[in-house]
């Protein structure tokens, strides 16, 4: 298979899955429709009928991790091509990546020392 044929197959697979889910939905519709009743459509909150919208400014306590993750995550963009040729290149590759990771690790250590690794 060429590359494009593979992607087409994957795309077709995804579309097929979506299609079969829709078939399932229409089957369920054929069995019956949802009856509109008071209270039924309010998000369940354990016996209390809380109607207030909750879409507010949410305090994500992990933003310290989040910031470091955004940066640190990029490391793997370089790591995969590196890993593939690692055996071929040998020691130089190890040293290269060692330096790269050591630099990034410094960043992690700095973040840790500044208290980024905690619930804010």
């Amino acid at each position: 298979m060429t590359l494009l044929e593979q992607y087409r197959l994957l795309l077709a697979l995804a579309i097929g899955v979506v299609g079969s889910v829709f078939c399932l939905y229409s089957l369920a519709r054929a069995i019956g429709l949802t009856r509109q009743e008071p209270g039924k459509d309010v998000p369940a909150s354990s016996g209390a009928l809380s109607r207030d919208p909750v879409w507010g400014r949410y305090h994500a306590r992990y933003y310290g991790y989040g910031l470091l993750f955004l940066a640190f995550d990029m490391e793997m963009a370089f790591m995969y091509p590196w890993a593939v040729v690692y055996k071929e290149v040998g020691l130089v590759a190890l040293l290269d990546m060692g330096v790269f990771l050591a630099i990034l690790f410094l960043g992690l250590l700095y973040g840790w020392s500044q208290g980024a690794f905690r619930r804010q």
């Binding site: 990029m74 630099i103 990034l104």
Partner: peptide, 27 residues
């Protein structure tokens, strides 16, 4: 990968430094 470890090695390492800078700056 060969490019990364060959001609563009400095770019790669510079990217490392940049990431470090960003981490420190953001924190």
């Amino acid at each position: 990968g060969m490019e990364l470890l060959g001609r563009s090695m400095m770019i790669f390492e510079t990217a490392g430094i940049t990431i470090l800078t960003a981490m420190i700056a953001a924190t």
